[in-house]
């Protein structure tokens, strides 16, 4: 993963869309526990819409492809997740070059996560996708392997369990949000693992 020039974007899209589809019910169940129960369906709708555009997306330079993926997610996911995941990919596309090296990718990802935080008016520790994305960014910046990055994502997901939700629908539940994994954290970790496995088989 020193450079990302050899990325097979169509395989990446398929990998992420497959993962989201396979876990849609699990994500919805997580969301139903402390939210409105549409996260799995929404994410699946969005990534299937991205999958449908695989051919034209694969022809674009990486930054343009990422921006287009983000826009597609914004327009199709619905819920707050659409703008949040959409902003992640759109900003990543804006900040990255066509052939990013690891340090550049890590810096761009950091800015993309900051944009998600601004979009959601949230920050670390509020039981959201940010609680997975920031540790993932730190692991990438620290030169960890794909497997280690994916493991960091899983650990960070689990760490949302004892947190009390401060943002989003789950925050309406107050203390009752404690003891459940955040659905957006879980879907973030699923995407991270799918990408890590694709870039580094065996991760």
């Amino acid at each position: 993963m020193e450079t990302m020039t050899t990325i097979d974007l169509s395989a990446l899209i398929a990998g992420v869309a497959d993962t989201i589809a396979a876990h849609a019910e699990e994500l919805t169940a997580l969301d139903r526990a402390i939210g409105d129960g549409d996260h799995g369906l929404n994410m699946k709708r969005g990534f299937e819409a991205v999958r449908a555009e695989t051919a034209p997306l694969s022809e674009k330079p990486l930054p343009d492809a990422l921006k287009a993926i983000g826009t597609k997610l914004v327009m199709t996911v619905g819920g707050a997740s659409g703008p949040l995941f959409g902003t992640l990919f759109m900003t990543l596309g804006k900040e990255i070059s066509s052939e990013p090296r690891r340090a550049e990718f890590a810096a761009a990802l950091g800015k993309a996560i900051d944009a998600v935080a601004a979009r959601g008016k949230s920050q670390l520790g509020q039981k959201t996708m940010l609680d997975v994305l920031y540790p993932v960014q730190a692991a990438i910046a620290a030169g960890k392997t794909g497997r280690e990055v994916a493991e960091a994502a899983d650990r960070a997901t689990e760490a949302t369990k004892p947190m009390k939700a401060i943002r989003g629908r789950a925050s309406f539940l107050g203390d009752r949000s404690i003891g459940h994994v955040d659905a957006g954290a879980r879907s973030s970790a699923l995407i991270v693992r799918a990408v890590a496995e694709m870039l580094e088989p065996g991760a």
């Binding site: 914004v74 619905g78 819920g79 707050a80 997740s81 659409g82 703008p83 949040l84 959409g86 902003t87 979009r119 959601g120 943002r167 989003g168 629908r169």
Partner: peptide, 15 residues
């Protein structure tokens, strides 16, 4: 009404 409507509306205005 609720959060997602606000976030989606903010995104719409930006777009």
């Amino acid at each position: 009404d609720l959060g997602g409507a606000e976030t989606n509306s903010e995104m719409a205005v930006e777009m």
